[in-house]
Computed example of a mutant assay.
Amino acid sequence: MPRGDWLWPAIWLLPSDDAYGGWPTSGEIDIVESRGNGRDACGPGQDNWHFGSTLHFAPQGGKSAFLHTHSEAAAPSGGPLSDAFHVYGLEWGPEGLYTYIDDRSNIVLAVNFTKESFFDRGSKWEMTCFKRGEGGRCDSWLPSLPEWDGGGATKDPWNGSALPKAAPFDRAFYLQLNVAVGCTGYNDWLFFPDHLCKDKPWRNGDKHTAESDFLGSFESWWPSWGGNVTDPARGASRNASMQIESVRYWAP
């Protein structure tokens, strides 16, 4: 994984077609989302030593009940993810899916498809972690209203599926690997929240100035990418990139 302040590496999947509707109604699978920042830069455990796995889903666009299907973990070695290659795996079948790191025994996120549909799952109250302790462990949880009311006017877009409890994760997805830089927005759960990230050079709500604010702090974050402030044309170091040893896929 890359090393560098405000880098956002991800290994994730999106549906090959929006059979159930636009994002996130047709689903999203995040095997890995991490950060390039050093230790605890965005709160305990929110750094390049840790990563999260998440499923995004909702019966209408623009929302996601991801808090029901999210988990975070660290490398079994205990070191930064940027120091060595790791295996980031996904096992996925009609009865459920799970993500793991390095070995199938190191499960990060496990979601069972047989017990309840995603519509029923998302209709329940969510639990938001608002305080993390050592190693990113959640110390305090806060209940919050669900993204939709299963007994109300919201319709279930997935009930026509041949595998209704697995939908929208019952269709073909494609793999993406990318490194983004920063993000903006107004929600507290964003990847670089204002109230948690130390020394962040932009505010998420200042969408008109966020990019210029970020660039204006070039001297503070460019060295963390391995770049030379006095000679920026030399570029960042190799350590600021996502380095891929292999991508492997086995069909059922």
Rank of each mutant, 00 (worst) to 15 (best):
P2Y: 12
G4W: 00
P9A: 11
P15Q: 07
D18N: 13
A41W: 07
G43V: 01
Q46M: 13
W49L: 05
W49V: 01
F51K: 05
G52P: 00
S53F: 08
H56L: 10
H56R: 05
S64L: 01
A65C: 15
S71T: 10
S71I: 03
P76F: 09
G78K: 06
P80N: 02
Y88T: 03
E91I: 10
G93T: 07
P94F: 01
G96R: 07
Y100C: 03
I101V: 15
D102C: 11
R104M: 08
R104D: 04
N106K: 06
I107W: 01
F119V: 07
M127G: 09
M127R: 06
F130C: 00
G133W: 07
C138L: 01
P146M: 09
D149K: 07
G150Y: 06
G151K: 08
G151Y: 09
S161W: 11
R171N: 07
Y174A: 12
L175I: 07
Q176L: 15
A180N: 08
G185S: 08
P193R: 08
D199F: 09
A210P: 03
E211D: 11
F214K: 00
L215A: 15
L215Y: 12
E219T: 15
S220V: 12
T230P: 00
D231L: 05
R238M: 10
M242L: 14
S246K: 09
P252R: 04
